[in-house]
């Protein structure tokens, strides 16, 4: 497994690319989690997904495929955020090539606080 740290806030180095798959950290009204940012349908940019109104599901901007936030919270990538840095344990081999880069985030995934 690959343990990697990256920025938890939108901006520089907020995405880790491993095996051509981007992972970002989402902070939502429902909770925080590491989001594999490629839609399993046709590879749409899930870091730009929106929340389905009234439901805990993310909607891909390409074909409107829904992804369960509850599942990402309970069964997602194990991660811990400390301040503005998140450390995730990714399901790839230790030492796997990876790089940090920037991904813009949709408003619903870069929630800045308040009561939940």
């Amino acid at each position: 497994m690959l343990v990697v740290s990256f920025a938890a806030r939108p901006g520089k180095d907020n995405c880790v690319m491993v095996d051509d798959l981007p992972y970002v950290y989402a902070r939502t009204e429902c909770g925080e989690f590491v989001l594999p940012a490629r839609c399993p349908h046709r590879g749409g940019p899930l870091h730009l997904a929106s929340f389905e109104p009234g439901r805990t599901r993310l909607v891909c901007p390409w074909h409107e495929r829904a992804t369960s936030v509850t599942r990402l919270l309970r069964a997602g990538i194990p991660a811990v955020r400390r301040g503005d840095t998140v450390t995730a344990v990714l399901p790839v081999a230790d030492g796997a090539p990876h790089r940090l880069e920037h991904r813009p985030m949709s408003e619903g995934l870069s929630w800045e606080g308040g009561s939940r």
Partner: peptide, 19 residues
């Protein structure tokens, strides 16, 4: 607010973090 743990953690995940 400072620390948030998320996702599904296994024994091996924790060992990887500690290592």
């Amino acid at each position: 607010a400072e620390v948030e743990v998320s996702g599904k953690w296994t024994r091996n995940d924790l060992v990887a973090l500690m290592s």
